[in-house]
Design a binder for these strands. Sequence first.
DNA 1: CAAAAAATGATAGGCGTCAATCATTATTCT
DNA 2: AGAATAATGATTGACGCCTATCATTTTTTG
Lengths: 352, 352
Amino acid sequence: MASPTLSDVAQAAGVSYATADRVVNKRGNVAEKSIRKVRDAMAALGYVRNVAAANLSRGRVYRLAFLIPLGPNAFFNRIRDHLKITAERLQTEQIRVEIIEVAAFGVEDMQAGLTALLEQDFDGVAIVGLKSAALEQPLAALRQKGVAIVGLVSDLPIDYRSAYIGIDNRVAGRTAARLIGMAHGGGKGLVQTFAGALAAHDHAERLAGFQEVITADFPKIALLNPLMTKDAAAVVQSQASAALAQHPDLTAVYNVGAGNSGLIAALTLAPRKPFCVVHELVPHTRKAVEAGHIDIVIDQRPDVEINRAFSVLRALIDEQGVPRMPELVPTIYLRDNLPGAPFPETMKDKTT
Amino acid sequence: MASPTLSDVAQAAGVSYATADRVVNKRGNVAEKSIRKVRDAMAALGYVRNVAAANLSRGRVYRLAFLIPLGPNAFFNRIRDHLKITAERLQTEQIRVEIIEVAAFGVEDMQAGLTALLEQDFDGVAIVGLKSAALEQPLAALRQKGVAIVGLVSDLPIDYRSAYIGIDNRVAGRTAARLIGMAHGGGKGLVQTFAGALAAHDHAERLAGFQEVITADFPKIALLNPLMTKDAAAVVQSQASAALAQHPDLTAVYNVGAGNSGLIAALTLAPRKPFCVVHELVPHTRKAVEAGHIDIVIDQRPDVEINRAFSVLRALIDEQGVPRMPELVPTIYLRDNLPGAPFPETMKDKTT
DNA sequence: CAAAAAATGATAGGCGTCAATCATTATTCT
DNA sequence: AGAATAATGATTGACGCCTATCATTTTTTG
């Protein structure tokens, strides 16, 4: 009943342990015939290699690095928190995690960070929310060295990473559009969108997806030109206030980027409240949902992403191929399914 | 730089390996003073036990059983599929999974299934979607034996399980209500709900949550009495058709239970299409979303639940306590964020 | 057919931990 | 103090696999 070991396989195949070992570890110098015998025996016995034993034997430790933009951004804080908790838990499995913080928008810093990675020998690297052509050089070098690379939250050039773990931002934008459209109940509408900058791929994609759906499926809803905010709360606030004042018939707002505290502030002051959709559940957006200023938060589930990053990195390092896992879907939060607080008080004032 | 071993700890603490071992494995017969010395040394060196080595040494294999209702139910099929895939992958980590199918609504079968578990010695059991007072006896016996028990998808009596992995159905119902409410854009409405049977806790909870939110926050929306369907598609279809005919002003329908193919059929035939919310993304509901017959699917993410079941069971068996993980949230699908193929191809396949 | 090359066998030490044994040393009790 | 008890030390053989070495056999080649 005990699991068969490699010795069992060797015996069943009628070869020595050494030969069986040569086969499973691809050491070469084995006759085709023997390879077949061993393979057959493995199949017959249902042999599965005991990775624990293997890793123990070869003294493997998984050395992983997470590159995360530095700064007070609430979303990245969330990532960092989850990362720390998970890393802690994975210590027992010989996984060592280093969190490397990189100045958010300085290309040189990123390059420096990546280059530094080359020195230390990591087995895998997850790169969070950094995208720049300037990264290609060091990424290529890392890859060359056999380091597993995954893009987290925002994708990397496809040639330089083995996997992307994050949501499809076009889908996220479309989702926002569908919800906003629905909330108009077939009526007319006017929507103001906000983005950090169109240079940011994810923002551009969200906006594109958003516009696609609105134009295609909700002809009665008009779109104002997106306002660029640099993801700065102050900018968002002033622009949002201006937009609210200028368009008394505004029915909805959608911010694809950050700086939501500004948006919330503007909405709090506004006499009417348009339907409001934003991204990422962080303390202040959460509060705003509870208060009724924000109707919907579309979230990436960084916790899920982090978990997945670990399993993918590990699989890549073990050369097992990326496990098949269902797609990551932008999660929709509204006041009733916020995690943590089961039952919010119901809204007294009715809106939309 | 290498991780400290227990020998290192012993040395640093100035005791023998044997004593250090007595401390970490709680074998007793150790002086307080020594315990302290060892603990301090562990902290100082940052010792973490190498579980791989430990499990190897004690020849541990995790023997897990999943009890799943038998039958052609699309949702349970989904669970089963994910389970198989995951189990396959976890073989390398000495996790052996047995899927035990139990006749869905036969209490005796369930009991028999559980009692059978007692004979074989499993380390952990996950019980999916079965709830009955008749289970208490065998559950208690299992627990007594030290088997870790988790409820999956639908909860077990709290005294007989160590964890529940599933969504909060009241939250799910509230979520549905909020979405339906939103979709009325502040206008009037009339909603028909469907449930399998109120005896099913999850159905009752969903309905309750749903009614809570509608009555509290959407006073212009009227609720018809829920129709009981026994989760049978044929019943759903006839009732839905009747309701649609009888209430020309019906604006929305919400089915908390199964039998959605009947609902879809009825909607397809209907001249007007009310806003439609159902549960669980399975092939036919998915198709209906794409076709525009269903507007929203609220899903449990069985894949996520399965994954979590494994980590929780493992943690329980290792006596590490249940890791803190973010709550499971009912996921909202609409036509724009439907996941691609349920099981995307592997991105890179290298057989070992 | 002998020599070279390729394949195979046999075996051993180590990875970190567990579990056990036996001998030795401290501590407590009468 | 001496005996009984508790605590500690020292050591060993698994567990399954990796890695390496060296001897032996088989196959290929000229």
